[in-house]
Write a protein that binds this DNA or RNA. Structure first.
Lengths: 200, 200, 200, 200
DNA sequence: CATGAATGAGCATTCATTCAT
DNA sequence: CATGAATGAATGCTCATTCAT
């Protein structure tokens, strides 16, 4: 019989993750000390290790969390009838989705994690992700081609990969310039370009 | 009266930079020790400090170097008569440019540097870059509009920013998947999309 | 809620200071490594930094400690009725005060600290000290003049400064020759000279 | 047949010593780098080692030089007829002797050297010095006693040691406060005290 | 003789992780 | 469960000394 409810533990885990995200976003993974995280999450250094095996594990979990969150949208898309509506909603989602500090922190951490994952022996992180995400878009595009919404000769695979590359590029620049208005107008422009390419 | 020619010193500097790029690309900036760089450049730890003030300075110089290299293309573009040819050449340049290990190392380092520059008190790195690079594209687009090659209602500013965001995104994914063929086909597809947007 | 009592922490601090004093006295501040101090105080290098910000801070604290100790006598003097008795007691104090190894270590460290404080940008250490110490003697001498114990034409200010200069010189030579007997006989002789000068 | 005259070499040695004294006085022995000395003496790091075996040797030589200089006065004293005149001249010498920057530098270095010599295995420096200097004063005092200038019951040995201790103390305080006027008035006062003690 | 590039031992300091309380 | 003191390995950087030119 655990003294402390699972619920409480889960909340504390999440709180530590959020605090860590803030620290990592502000100072970077390496520059952040476990003490920083402890202080930010108003707990003790020792407690951190009750919830996570290491500082590195926190980094990994933050990336997982962000990836799941980002992928949640897939569920919502099934409601939309055609490919055009789906892609349109996708952009709606990105353009009007909330961009609070916590979200920006997680974005920053995710990019740092990616760069980190680029290093020796950690590349498989990307293979999983690219698989999931390109398939996601591929299916929509194929649906659009089948229904006649999109041109037949769309290079589906290349397009899907370019789609996420561009989106990552746009989000990366949001990180650089911290200008959400600019970010949104880039997304809108990109949507136009996409439809210009897909349709007709 | 230096016993060692300036030329020799410059070569040594460059050699250290290349070695550092390799180390940073493999292990990341923080994980790389100055000893690693010394070993990789076949010199001593002390010598590193004859050529650079700190490990951090090496990081900065590597970013500077890459940025200059990337920007060199601007000179070459003046030869081309119209905006279409310029943009086309730009893509040629990116698509057929050499992608040896050293270049990939520098790309990896540059992205890590950007993430690092994202952190507290270092953002001005981006303002310089965005200014130079967006202006670069803006001028070409405006030339194209004036000459009638491109539509009048192109959103020049947004387009220019999107252009570099996308390019950065594509290069970032090259880093992730290390697949140059895929990288090139994405660039080709992006060129198509751009012209579809700009023309007519 | 500290797991370790404040008392314990204070004791540990003091123990580190004593060990450091021993190391500094034996090898000098620069030649002493933090490892030396750790070893001497039977703790770890890391622990040293739990109690002090830097090696230099230890050096400063040791000087502060010695200065306070040296100045403690002032309290005791208030009991004595006249200036002669006060000065006499002062010498008693110096002559018969204990001169164990720890004290000698602290003396050695203090002189090294002074020489160190002589260097660029650290001289204000002395202004505080000279003020406190000369005032201390000045008051006694003035009391003696008023009461008629001492000559009216004593050069109070010069005398006070000479007093501490001489005392410092005597203690410095104790450091050089480590001969406590000689040290005490010099103090006694100096007392004679002082009274010969002050009285009559 | 040496290419460069001995004279030139000697001058260069002296120049390096003076520069080193300046550096040591300003930053301390440990804090001074051989590069500092090279720069200050307008020569190269390598050259320093043509003239001195090590940084430490420079430190030693500086102390020797100062000690010799200080002892030079002994020769001059033989001209004076009696002990009183000799001591009087001694004070004249100290009080009106020049106190330029170079002299102050050497004083500073000497004290630092003493503290340094205090450390393990270097104490014999003092035994030599104390022997020479106390004998010097002892002889004068004994001459004065014999001639009837001074009291018969002067504690010659203690007095001689106290004499140098005090002088060192006074010079030490000059180092602390850098106030030459104050320094001279302390010397004058000390002379008074001495004669008050010796005579009558 | 003169130079200053090269070397690598040495050191202060930091910090992730452990563990006694 | 919670804490934070303790640890010591790890690392950036310095600098006396050497030596090829």
């Amino acid at each position: 019989m655990p003294r402390v409810s699972e619920n409480y533990k889960e909340e504390k885990r999440e709180a530590i993750l959020d605090s860590a995200a803030q620290c990592f976003a502000e100072k970077g993974f390496s520059e952040t000390t476990v003490d920083d995280i402890a202080k930010a999450s108003k707990t003790s250094k020792g407690s951190i290790y009750l919830y996570f095996k290491s500082k590195e594990e926190i980094f990994h979990k933050l990336n997982d969390r962000r990836t799941e969150k980002y992928f949640e949208i897939k569920e919502q898309l099934s409601e939309f009838k055609n490919a055009t509506a789906k892609i349109d909603y996708l952009f709606q989602y990105f353009i009007s989705g909330k961009m609070d500090d916590n979200t920006l922190n997680h974005i920053a951490v995710q990019f740092e994690f990616w760069i980190y994952a680029t290093k020796a022996g950690r590349q498989q992180v990307f293979d999983d992700r690219v698989e999931r995400f390109t398939t996601f878009i591929t299916e929509i595009i194929e649906e659009g081609i089948e229904s006649g919404e999109f041109r037949e000769d769309v290079q589906v695979k290349e397009f899907s990969r370019l789609f996420w590359s561009t989106l990552d590029g746009i989000v990366l620049h949001l990180l650089f310039h911290k200008d959400i208005t600019e970010h949104r107008s880039m997304l809108r422009l990109y949507e136009q370009m996409i439809f210009k390419y897909l349709q007709n």
